[in-house]
Design a protein around this nucleic acid. Structure first.
Lengths: 361, 361
DNA sequence: AGGTCCGGTGTTACCGGCAACATCGGGCGA
DNA sequence: TCGCCCGATGTTGCCGGTAACACCGGACCT
């Protein structure tokens, strides 16, 4: 408290007034630490707070002060340290993402679009992969994510365990499952009211009346939604789902399902995704049945490969990209407090290709 | 400095000795902040440093002190704050991951295994998706990642731009491209010396002599390695690569390449990945050619779907899972200073299915 | 018996930002 | 002309940990 700092610039020994002594940092030294606002402040001959104010875009800074700060910032190649900032602000600009089956088309597509949306908003996704879907590993992954101080939590796959975990854990931050939640009967999604009926109508118009359904794993809400939508649409249009076989989304499971059948009691196979449809087509061909002459096959998703199956697959295109983006936007909206719950619409569109044809008589 | 803190537990006014005054935290209040080591210390009647020591597994703590700390930790549901920790230690337990085409099989598979390996080592992957591969967006993404104080940087796709960016940017942290780097002729990878020769040998034994090559995009080092390995193996075994067409890894591009051909001058098509092979098979069928009776087709990767193509695809299985894991392990090794440069072997294995057969006479 | 060492803990400083408050000089009104 | 207000900037404290050092009492040594 002896003497006050003299604000005259250019004073030779002004370093003595520095609040914190720091080891000098020679510009020539090779592996120097990144510059902090204190380094910048010292170089510019101002206080660190002036630098901080400049960085936050504070207007009331005198032009010459501003110029000195700008110069020092570029000279020292200053980069903000998000860790330090988030310690005080609590804003880490990170969103935790949790998923298994990340190498599958759906989750990876959603992850890609979610990550892009996050990036555009200045956020980064902290991804933790799950090997198994059980509660223990989910809880463990969530606690890992929580330690990283994320501002929101996103799940990319919506199994029952995931849903349960999200329901019973208090995250203290916004949390969301990116894939479709269970759709109660009263919720009229575009998929259930337009997409699936269009697919079923397409089959009906070709004369099909009996459908074999290859369902996704029943612990996935997406699988349940698809099955329910199919059953509803079939009932309404007078078609019968004569049999439902549960697969695991893989071509392998679609193949096994159709191969294991004693008799094919249907003229059309509606698969809950494209890849099980691929397996089904192979199995049909191995049974000596032709697609679409003997049996029509449809998928859901319209993955890029589906247009190049043999035959190219009639399918329901789902807007996965939109879903990942919408999920991230909603989370960021909730973080910022703007409770803009835009009802992310699940868009779907019927894509007719050569895997469907007139029902055999 | 008036009086020393009396270490007697149970003293009524011991709060007065607290180093930092904190707003009291009622256990009943709903949205209370997470407990810190100071809260735990106060509850246990010890100093925060004792708590910190306990958390680090320091041995020399008296059993009764230890018990008090443990009790307070569980009572308050203490969770460490990684942000605060990493501010001092510089260890964020985060690895930055950079990728485009995250929805493609290769990158997403590698990402999944990398993320699992990271998780097992206590790390989280900070993923930033790239829309385009140009230097600007790479640089921007890298600077985003850098602000998040990652301990290492991983790229999941190895285009030329990525390679260049990695070569010219000083990351200050270990950095690695997870996919294959360019393999100089002298580097004898298992893929180049065993895998690809086995594939070519398989075709040779079936009587094929003229090969059409569907290459990957030439700015990908993986594509160049595959093309070079094919050319070398073909030369050694007396086969001719009569034509090379560059695709973009997609079935679409494989289809376009074969459709656009005036005449097929070869009896076998070697595609740089499975999906281009899928497109090629469809194009062949549209030309009235049968696989494998008229033309044999092979892929590389052995994606799960490849076994269910029509016909099931003969391909070279690549160990993508191992690659992601190996990359993360090497990075963590470098972080920890243990310079264990285990030469991550690119394992490959010939999988013969029904898309290859005897060459037509 | 006094000094020394040492195990067990407490205290202080620091990481790099942000927020609140303090300070200083000049313009302006009374 | 003096006090007040205000704009520009400096100072201090804090976020939640870790690291270095200080301190205290008892065992051991001479």
């Amino acid at each position: 408290m002896a003497e006050q700092a003299i604000p005259t610039p250019g004073t030779a020994d002004r370093d003595a007034g520095a609040v914190r002594a720091r080891s000098p940092r020679s510009a020539t030294s090779g592996a120097r630490r990144p510059a902090t606002i204190y380094d910048v402040a010292q170089a510019a001959g101002v206080s660190h707070q002036t630098v901080s104010r400049y960085l936050k875009g504070f207007e009331g800074i005198r032009p010459e002060t501003r110029a000195k700060v700008e110069r020092a910032l570029t000279d020292l190649e200053y980069r903000p340290n998000l860790t330090a900032r988030s310690l005080t602000t609590g804003r880490s600009r990170r969103i935790g993402a949790l998923t298994h089956d990340i190498d599958k088309y759906g989750p990876s597509k959603i992850l890609g679009s979610a990550s892009a949306a996050a990036r555009d908003a200045g956020y980064v996704l902290d991804v933790v992969a799950l090997d198994t879907g059980d509660m223990d590993s989910i809880a463990q992954a969530l606690s890992m994510i929580a330690e990283h101080d994320v501002e929101a939590i996103l799940a990319l796959s919506s199994t029952d365990e995931m849903t349960k975990a999200f329901a019973q854990i208090d995250f203290r931050v916004p949390a969301l499952i990116a894939t479709e939640p269970d759709e109660p009967a009263r919720v009229a999604s575009q998929f259930a009211t337009v997409g699936m009926p269009a697919l079923v109508g397409h089959l009906a118009s070709l004369g099909h009346r009996r459908i074999l359904h290859l369902a996704g794993p029943s612990q996935w809400s997406a699988a349940r939604n698809r099955t329910r939508a199919l059953e509803n649409a079939a009932t309404e249009q007078g078609l019968a789902v004569v049999r439902t076989i549960e697969g695991d989304w893989s071509a392998q499971s679609g193949h096994a399902a159709v191969s294991g059948l004693a008799a094919l009691e249907a003229t059309a196979i509606v698969s809950a995704n494209d890849q099980m449809a691929l397996g089904a087509i192979l199995a049909l061909s191995e049974r000596g049945l032709s697609v679409p002459d003997d049996v029509s096959v449809t998928g859901i998703d319209d993955i890029p490969d589906a247009a190049f199956y043999l035959p190219p697959l009639t399918t329901l295109r789902m807007d996965l990209t939109g879903r990942g983006r919408a999920a991230v936007r909603e989370l960021i909206g909730r973080i910022d407090g703007s409770e803009a719950h835009e009802p992310r619409a699940v868009q779907s569109e019927l894509i007719v290709r050569r895997s469907t044809g007139p029902a055999p008589r």
